[in-house]
Structures are given as C-alpha cells and as structure tokens.
Amino acid sequence: MSKNEITPDLVEKVAFLARIKLQPAEVQRYTEDLKGVFNWLEQLNEVNFDDVELEDNVPTLLREDAITDGNKLEDIVHNAPQQNFGMFSVPKVVE
C-alpha cells in the first residue's frame, strides 16, 4: 500500500462504506492526512513476521441459558429520535 493510492475518490468511497457524509474541504483534508498516516504505517513492512504465532487461548466467558432480561420497552425506545407502535421509525426501506 503506497500513499499514492490515497485519493479523494478513495476517501469518499471509504467514507460511504462508513456512512459518513464529507464536505469537499473534509475530503481534501482527510486525503492529505491519510497519505501521511499510511506513509508512516509503511514502517511495519520492516518487521519480520515469519515465525509469529498468534496466541489466542484465553477462553471467552459463557453464561447459563436463562431469561434474565427484556420487558423494558420504555428503556429501549425512549431515547429514539422517532418511534411509533413501540418500534423505531426510519425512512422507508425499499428492497
């Protein structure tokens, strides 16, 4: 990955993937910033990863199968910007 691959188009594409609308000035600024950051990240290419084994052997916690939650409609919906019928309301989703 070279810093030259960071273009305003790419920044906009990735911003859409992250669902973030950017103003044109932001696109310019992030393009420059990201070039710097990704250039700096290049140094990881110096590292020799040949014999690196990822240790990942601490087991996750488990819980017993019991109904301990729910029945809190008010808590669930009271912060919602828009709600009706006990449900969250969003612009119509067309499939």
Partner: peptide, 15 residues
C-alpha cells in the same frame, strides 16, 4: 454521522 461526529473521529473511522 457526518454531522454527529467531529473531525478527528471521522478521520479515525475512515482509517
């Protein structure tokens, strides 16, 4: 999200 997040957060989310 464009309005809600500040500049630094947006930058890191894009990264």
């Amino acid at each position: 999200r464009g309005e809600g997040f500040g500049a630094e957060v947006k930058k890191r989310l894009i990264i």
